[in-house]
Design a protein around this nucleic acid. Structure first.
Lengths: 232, 232
DNA sequence: AAGATTCCGTTGCTTTTGCAACAAAAAGGA
DNA sequence: TCCTTTTTGTTGCAAAAGCAACGGAATCTT
């Protein structure tokens, strides 16, 4: 676990703690670690989990595949991000989505019960961690809500605009990159890839935006246009 | 606040506490109360909030209206339910949805900061409340995820089936009532009311289900059929 | 460098949805 | 009870989306 201390220091959960403090808490929280190969499942639908997880390295997808092979991408997890927290304290709730490694990944687990109850040795920073945890869950909550906003749009165009303008705002610039390829973006917005491509093409023709691979530029409708160049 | 003690005892947040204990915590959490008329806004898009709220009485809608008058219903809040928790601890985050009273309502507020930091008088039950809060947010998180599952379905029929079978499972019976009228259900699933009605009609004709007003019956496809009767 | 694989864009066709407008049923108010 | 308002269902039409199939570009592998 020691090798991850400097990493953990910068995660939301341990923000504000020194490495030595994290080290001492790691025992208190019964930390453990596991690595996964690309393609391997970290969590499976129907299972239960009692730990809070942080991705230390790699990339994960939270996704759902139904009977008919329909594939929907709920969320992408980057290093430092928390997951499994929504199930960690629920006694009888079963996980509703799969979490899959899309790259070789390493995950750290912390016993939820230990995180939430101040331990007998009274770690002085426990209270801070609880606040951090709360903030992290709140943030996730807001993200889910925002995703619902994208998906609530009736047309593919409006879904795209909702998503892309949020990304642009996040980047605080009209030019930005998205973390998805076309198929993934389609799965994320829950539309057909080909139909989405068609719509993107139309929007470019109408001068709303330009793009190359996963770099996008939002254009103010009335003016002449910078164009995203393929990175070659 | 006293008149709400017996009510609060049964909410998720105060579950496990006695009325006297809740009473003593109410001060510690700087509880306050406010009533709203039908149609009045409880929270507005763009505002900030630093308190956790519980609906004591009435009915609320969390909704979003965009420029063009498109109306989408994120969530319905029933008495005892928590809300505003996703924003209460976020310093600079602005509320992204409106919360509106659809009936005359009474809301109780608790200072989030006080809830999360164990107070100097060291209320002995504070730790329990923190766990309860965590459980409640987790549950909300799961609900949002589930709603995304409904909305991720590509056709109105599949959205309806996803939603209705979840409701049926919740009721643990093939016959159940939903808390929405047609327009509200359409807003919740983010589809056109008329198109939804058309689809409901088809599904009934095909023997998948029957309904009257907001009472639904899911039918096993291959067999003969009980029918939902209007309540008159 | 050649071949294989993944990613991206395009298009014809069919189905589904949104939209608008209207009619009937139910609920609410005076 | 009568009148008004709300809710639900229906339908024609136009727009949008899903589906399938294909070809070329980019990337990876050996």
């Amino acid at each position: 676990m020691e090798k991850y201390l400097s990493f953990l220091k910068h995660t939301t959960l341990f923000e504000g703690l020194q490495e030595a403090q994290i080290q001492s808490m790691a025992n208190c929280l019964q930390a453990s670690r596991r690595s996964y190969r690309k393609g391997e499942y970290v969590l499976r639908q129907g299972a239960q989990v009692h730990a809070i997880a942080i991705l230390a390295q790699g990339l994960l997808h939270v996704q759902k595949d139904d009977y008919w092979g329909n594939h929907s991408l709920l969320h992408q997890i980057a290093p430092g991000e928390l997951f499994a927290e929504a199930y960690a304290m629920a006694e009888n709730e079963v996980i509703l989505n799969d979490v899959v490694a899309v790259e070789d990944s390493t995950v750290l687990f912390f016993q939820a019960q230990k995180v939430l109850t101040v331990c007998s040795n009274a770690c002085p920073f426990h209270s801070l961690i609880i606040q951090n945890l709360f903030r992290a869950i709140s943030a996730k909550n807001r993200h889910l809500t925002q995703k619902i906003d994208y998906m609530a749009q009736r047309t593919i165009r409006d879904k795209l605009l909702a998503y892309l303008s949020a990304q642009s705002e996040l980047a605080q610039a009209p030019t930005f990159q998205i973390p998805f390829n076309r198929q993934q973006l389609a799965d994320f917005l829950s539309v057909e890839r080909s139909a989405m491509c068609r719509e993107l093409g139309k929007m470019r023709d109408e001068g709303l935006l330009s793009f190359a691979r996963n770099t996008f530029v939002l254009l103010s409708p009335q003016r002449a246009n910078p164009t995203a160049q393929a990175d070659h």
